[in-house]
C-alpha cells in the first residue's frame, strides 16, 4: 500500500466542539505517484479543504495516516508547500521579499546568499513575475498575487505542491492564463501536485487523475477518474477530444446525478 510517493491511508478527521464531535472525513484512501497531478473535487462542505490541510500538516490526523516519501506527516513543513486560496502574501513585504522569506528559511544552510538571491529571481521568472518583483501585494492584481504565491511555494522545492483552490477567486480569463502557467511549470519541473478545485474543466484540463469526494459529513473518496490526455495539453486542442469529454462527463455525472448536494437530508 505505502509503496507510492504520497499515501493517504484510512484517514479519518473529526472535530470536537464542546461535547459535539463532527466527523468530516471517514476512511479516505488515496495513493499518488511521484510527478502525478491529482485534483480533488466535490461539493462545498465535503471536506476537500480539510483533506488538503491534513496533508499540509496544518490540521491533525484523528486516525489513519498521511505518508510522504516514507515519512508520516505530523506537522507543517516546506516540503509540502501550500498555495493558499487567498494568496496569503505578507502585505508589508514586496513580491521578491515574500519569495525570499521561504528561500532563506529552506536553503539557509545549503545555498550561499548570492545563490539564494538567484534562486528567488529564478522562481519569480518561472511564474513571469520578474517585472513586479519590487511591488507590494496591494500594488498588483489578484492573478499576479497568486503567481507570487505559486513562486513562493515552488521556491521551497516541495516534495508535493498543495494547491488550495488557487484560482477560485479569479476571473475566467486570468484563471485560464494561470492554468496554462501551472501546466508549463508542471511539465518543466515534474512536481507532484495535489489540487483542490470546484471547477470541472480545470480539473480535467490539469489532472492526471480526478478524485471525486462523496458529500459530507463523514465524506470519503467516491470515485477516481483517469484523464487519458497526452501532455503537453492545449486547452483548445483537447476541448473536443473523446478523452476530455469522457472525463468531464464522468465528473459531472458523479457530482450532479449521483452525489448531488443533499439539501433536505443535510
Amino acid at each position: 500500500m505505502s509503496k507510492s510517493y504520497l499515501s493517504i491511508e484510512n484517514l479519518c478527521v473529526s472535530f470536537r466542539s464542546g461535547s459535539k464531535v463532527s466527523e468530516v472525513l471517514r476512511g479516505v484512501d488515496l495513493q499518488i505517484d511521484r510527478g502525478e497531478f491529482v485534483s480533488i473535487i466535490g461539493h462545498s462542505g465535503c471536506g476537500k479543504s480539510t483533506m488538503l490541510n491534513v496533508v499540509a500538516g496544518l490540521l491533525p490526523v484523528s486516525t489513519g495516516a498521511v505518508i510522504l516519501d516514507g515519512e508520516a506527516v505530523e506537522r507543517p513543513g516546506p516540503e509540502r508547500a501550500v498555495v493558499f486560496q487567498n494568496h496569503s502574501l505578507l502585505p508589508w513585504l514586496t513580491a521578491y521579499e515574500n519569495v525570499r522569506l521561504g528561500v532563506d528559511k529552506v536553503f539557509r544552510a545549503t545555498k550561499s546568499r548570492a545563490e539564494r538571491h538567484e534562486w528567488t529571481l529564478h522562481n519569480l521568472a518561472l511564474v513571469q513575475m520578474t517585472h513586479a518583483k519590487d511591488k507590494k501585494p496591494h500594488e498588483i492584481s489578484g492573478g499576479m498575487k497568486q503567481r507570487v504565491g505559486l513562486a513562493r511555494a515552488l521556491a521551497m522545492e516541495p516534495k508535493v505542491l498543495l494547491l488550495d483552490e488557487p484560482f477560485g477567486a479569479l476571473d475566467a480569463l486570468t484563471r485560464a492564463n494561470l492554468q496554462d502557467s501551472v501546466m508549463e511549470i508542471h511539465a518543466q519541473l515534474k512536481n507532484t501536485v495535489l489540487m483542490i478545485t470546484h471547477d470541472v474543466d480545470e480539473a480535467v484540463l490539469l489532472s492526471d487523475r480526478i478524485v471525486m469526494m462523496t458529500n459530507g459529513p463523514a465524506a470519503s473518496v467516491g470515485e477516481i477518474a483517469h484523464v487519458d490526455l497526452a501532455r503537453p495539453r492545449n486547452r483548445i486542442a483537447v476541448d473536443a477530444t473523446p478523452a476530455y469529454i469522457q472525463a468531464r462527463h464522468a465528473v459531472i455525472e458523479f457530482l450532479y446525478a449521483r452525489h448531488a448536494a443533499v439539501r433536505a437530508a443535510a
Partner: peptide
C-alpha cells in the same frame, strides 16, 4: 492577525523568535 499569515509561518517552520519578527510585529504594527 489572519490565520493565513500564521499558516505561512507554520509551513515555513519559523522559530518563535522568527515568528515574532517576521509575522507578529509587522502585522500588529
Amino acid at each position: 492577525i489572519p490565520q493565513d499569515y500564521r499558516n505561512v509561518g507554520r509551513v515555513l517552520r519559523l522559530s518563535p523568535i522568527e515568528h515574532l519578527f517576521t509575522i507578529l510585529l509587522p502585522a500588529a504594527t
